[in-house]
């Protein structure tokens, strides 16, 4: 399946479904950290793999980032979720979780895994429920720590050429925490997604 296009109606619909899913994830994060999450507007795109860095508009300025990756699949839809953390966020993150020790690479990894667990899980669940599908999630794994964005994207070795991307930039009010949740769907998933969405648009 190639040359799929993302028409405005479909893009708008994905954005709204993501918005609702993001709201649930934000609610969980806000409860966990006892803070207020500034709700992001999800950005939906159909991109070539080489253009992926364009989907990371809100975090590309970060000098150093760390990221976790987790695959998901189900109902003939497949994809990958990437949670990319600006490394400058870890000081505030540690404070919010009441961690007072030295912030080592290991501590950063634990924070990264904890947050990605919440954000990726809630977001995928929210999307799946609205689309009336089920996703099973693979094991999350560390993509890299203390890298710049282009180094990081080289580590992601998926071979899909075109991707439906949903970028969700999270920020916490009053804190220097910013991270990007990136949901990538294979191009082959698009006809299935289109079909599921068409029921909602009737």
């Amino acid at each position: 399946m190639s040359n799929q296009i993302l028409d405005e109606e479909l893009r708008d619909c994905f954005q709204e479904l993501s918005n609702v899913a993001v709201g649930r994830a934000a609610d969980l994060l806000a409860r966990l950290l006892n803070t207020f999450v500034i709700m992001p507007i999800p950005v939906v795109n159909l991109l070539e793999r080489a253009e992926l860095s364009m989907a990371l508009s809100s975090i590309e300025d970060a000098e150093s980032v760390s990221a976790v990756c987790q695959g998901f699949t189900g109902s003939k839809i497949a994809g990958e979720a990437l949670l990319i953390f600006n490394d400058a966020s870890f000081t505030d993150m540690a404070e919010l979780t009441h961690y007072t020790g030295e912030i080592t690479k290991q501590i950063e990894l634990e924070l990264l895994m904890d947050i990605s667990n919440i954000l990726i899980g809630a977001c995928l669940k929210g999307l799946a429920e609205q689309l009336d599908v089920r996703f099973s999630q693979g094991q999350p794994y560390l993509l890299g720590q203390h890298l710049n964005i282009s180094e990081l994207l080289k580590k992601n070795t998926t071979t899909w050429q075109r991707l439906l991307t949903i970028e969700i930039p999270y920020k916490l009010e009053g804190h220097q925490v910013n991270c990007d949740l990136l949901l990538l769907f294979t191009e082959d998933s698009l006809p299935v997604l289109r079909n599921k969405v068409s029921y909602l648009m009737e």
């Binding site: 609702v20 899913a21 993001v22 934000a26 609610d27 207020f36 999450v37």
Partner: peptide
């Protein structure tokens, strides 16, 4: 009518004069 279901969001809009808050979906 919002997908932002943080309790704080509802409290803020009510303080700003909204009559009610309905969750999305």
């Amino acid at each position: 009518i919002s997908g932002d279901i943080q309790p704080e969001a509802e409290a803020r809009v009510k303080k700003l004069g909204a009559l009610a808050f309905v969750k999305k979906p």
